[in-house]
């Protein structure tokens, strides 16, 4: 059945309204201040460590992202941890709050499709996260200039910008999940708790579970075990399973892009290192190639979650 009119009628209006809600919302401002604070702390830690090492490094700026100094985690460590929280904070009450405020039927009685409302909320959330990431990126680059006195090279800028895009895709996965839960659960508190539960599962439980399951599927080989080495089969399975977690995908992408010396995201066999110049960075294209499947995985993950939301929302009765 063909529908009349454009599915995107009213989309711009919804995006602008939601965006202004986000940018003036106390909740979001508090979360973002928190992130900026932690980001500064981790950058401070990183510069202290980078000052200690006198070694020449062509990618000094990228090190700002990845280097940590205990007890502070690295900048990307913090992002990987906090992005899901912010995304969940933006999305967990996207749809159910309209029901609970009893505005949903009034809005959907206007000449727009539900598509526009849902997509508008998703895009506005993504834009908010994008603005936040861009600010953080500028902070890192600016801090690098001031604290280390190194002007960033073209490739560093390029790599860090691509990293920004990947971080946004990572945001998208969690935002889409949060919006999905906001459709399924009428209570915002339930949606938030379930979303945080999923996040906790992927950050804490799944890595352990992946290891455990891998050992079940491919029991360690005695030959390797005796030499105190992990069995290749087990490691491979563990990695396959771990990659079901968006956190893992994000981590691998970041590793490939921000640490140019990364040659592979899986176990490396000695044969593969033949002819390799140890310690030399890969060109950007090669790094991208390594992380390509992971990037696609992140984007696909957000699309799948969004489509699921769309299907559920489209059929929902609007009685409020």
């Amino acid at each position: 059945m063909r529908r009349e009119g454009s599915a995107f009628q009213g989309l711009g209006t919804v995006v602008l309204k939601e965006l202004s809600d986000h940018l003036t919302s106390m909740r979001i401002i508090v979360i973002e201040l928190l992130i900026v604070l932690v980001a500064f702390a981790s950058l401070y830690g990183a510069t202290e460590r980078l000052r200690d090492t006198t070694q020449e490094d062509p990618f000094l700026l990228l090190k700002l992202f990845t280097v940590d100094r205990a007890p502070l985690p690295s900048f990307i460590g913090i992002l990987g941890f906090l992005i899901p929280i912010v995304a969940i904070g933006l999305g967990f009450d996207a749809i159910n709050s309209e029901y609970n405020r009893r505005t949903m039927s009034r809005i959907l009685a206007q000449p727009i499709y539900r598509d526009a409302l849902l997509l508008g909320k998703f895009l506005a959330g993504l834009a908010t996260l994008g603005v936040m990431l861009l600010c953080l990126w500028l902070i890192v680059i600016g801090y690098g200039l001031f604290a280390l006195g190194v002007p960033p090279g073209t490739e560093e800028i390029l790599r860090s910008l691509i990293f920004l895009g990947i971080a946004l895709a990572y945001c998208g996965v969690w935002l889409a999940l949060a919006i999905f839960l906001s459709i399924v659960f009428r209570s915002a508190a339930t949606a938030a708790l379930v979303a945080l539960g999923v996040w906790l599962f992927f950050t804490l439980i799944w890595p352990m579970l992946a290891q455990f399951l891998a050992q079940l599927i491919a029991p360690p080989d005695l030959a390797y075990l005796l030499r105190g080495l992990p069995s290749p089969d087990t490691v491979e399975w563990q990695q396959i399973l771990a990659r079901f977690s968006p956190n893992q995908l994000f981590g691998e992408c970041v590793l490939a892009l921000l640490s140019p010396t990364t040659r592979s995201l899986g176990p490396i066999y000695v044969e593969q290192l033949q002819g390799a110049v140890m310690g030399a960075g890969l060109p950007l294209g090669q790094s991208l190639l390594i992380a390509w499947p992971q990037m696609v995985g992140l984007v696909a993950g957000s699309i799948v979650m969004f489509v699921a939301s769309y299907i559920v929302f489209q059929r929902q009765e609007v009685r409020a």
Binding site: M1, E4, Q9, R101, R102, R106, I112, Y113
Partner: peptide
């Protein structure tokens, strides 16, 4: 169902206990 936009352009609806953005 087939022409929702056309219908909703010309019909106004005041739901039971209507809500607004407070």
């Amino acid at each position: 169902v087939r022409s929702p936009l056309e219908v909703k352009r010309r019909v106004g609806y005041l739901p039971d206990s209507v809500g607004f953005y407070d």
